[in-house]
């Protein structure tokens, strides 16, 4: 046996309180699967820090109007006489404007906080839609096979083959030329359209993961046993197979959220995302790209928040993967 695989040495002294405790030792507790995952996740220091950051960010985003009230500046209030110079260039951080102002004279701090709302909303909702589509189609395709499998697989191939950015630009432009938007008025430019575009391009990856996992699971003995005792196919799919997909789905969803946030930032950076009156980090970075040589704060603050959020989601996803499958990290 290699040294690294040896059990740890016994402590030289033993805490009497441990010996007197009536609780079973942690490892001996009977836990739910979720409880086990959480127990494994919470010992991941990086994951916990990232999770706390995300929870704090979400709280801040929800409380954005309170923050604005506290600061005394709304996200679209203009302070052009005090915070914009004669050339239309914004002024930097000071006691009243902690992150400085943008070129319209709006408080960048307040807008960054409001920007978290858009990023989190887009990231979570777009991912949720993609997950639902990907899981349902992947489950059906993997379990049923046949024509449905071929149909859904080719659909995902088509979506993956589409030039994502050009498609997004096309949809955004096409839906911007009339008050009604497009698709019989169901899609108008703004957060909803961004969410739909991101979801359209995100579901195939989830579909492939679910389909592949379901395919391998379909032939396993516990599914065979379920069939043998007369369970209906639908029940097998949703009561036996689906719970076993939880691990890859949750982990991939956690990775999909930062991708969605970044995609929203790309779209807003290109002027195709949410309108200017709705603060978004991508939109702020777009403005910064014109002015960063004279207004560094426009780039730094939204950039830091975007970077930290993406990083946090990725670290949480990494932690979840380890928690779901501890052998993978060994």
């Amino acid at each position: 046996m290699r040294a690294s695989a040896m059990p740890p040495a016994a402590p030289m002294s033993v805490d009497i309180r441990t010996l007197e405790s009536t609780d079973p030792p942690p490892d001996a507790r009977v836990r739910s699967p979720a409880g086990m995952v959480w127990a494994r996740f919470r010992v991941n220091r990086g994951g916990m820090v990232a999770l706390v950051f995300l929870v704090a960010l979400a709280a801040l985003a929800i409380a954005a109007p309170l923050v604005a009230d506290l600061v005394g500046h709304g996200p679209n209030d203009l302070y052009r006489t005090t915070m914009v110079d004669i050339y239309g260039l914004p002024k930097g951080p000071n006691a009243s404007f902690w992150f400085g102002a943008d070129s319209a004279g709006r408080d960048l701090f307040v807008r960054v906080i409001y920007g978290a709302r858009v990023s989190l909303l887009v990231g979570v909702v777009a991912t949720a839609i993609a997950v639902v589509i990907g899981v349902v189609l992947g489950l059906i395709a993997g379990y049923r096979g046949g024509a449905l499998d071929t149909l859904f697989s080719r659909m995902s191939d088509v979506v993956l083959a589409m030039p994502l950015l050009l498609f997004a630009i096309g949809i955004s432009s096409a839906c911007s030329t009339t008050p009604q938007g497009c698709v019989a008025g169901t899609l108008t430019p703004g957060v909803n359209l961004v969410i739909v575009i991101i979801a359209i391009f995100s579901w195939p990856a989830m579909f492939r993961i679910v389909r592949a996992t379901t395919l391998s699971m379909r032939e396993s003995t516990f599914i065979e046993a379920s069939r043998a005792i007369g369970m209906r196919e639908r029940n097998i799919m949703f009561r036996e197979v689906l719970p076993n997909l939880l691990s890859p789905v949750v982990v991939y969803a956690a990775l999909l959220i930062p991708q969605s946030i970044l995609f929203e930032a790309y779209l807003s950076f290109l002027g195709l995302g949410v309108p200017d009156s709705t603060p978004s980090w991508g939109g702020m970075l777009d403005q910064a790209s014109q002015l960063f040589t004279v207004a560094w704060w426009l780039m730094v603050f939204p950039g830091i928040f975007l970077l930290a959020t993406i990083l946090a989601f990725n670290v949480v996803a990494d932690g979840l993967r380890d928690a779901f499958d501890p052998r993978a990290s060994e």
Binding site: L78, S176, D276, S277
Partner: peptide, 24 residues
């Protein structure tokens, strides 16, 4: 783009709100 908030802010004082589409 810099003009948009200025116009929105001015018209809001008259109760006019805008549904703005930003195009090339």
């Amino acid at each position: 783009l810099n003009e948009i908030p200025v116009v929105q802010s001015a018209l809001a004082k008259l109760g006019i709100t805008l549904n703005i589409r930003q195009l090339t």
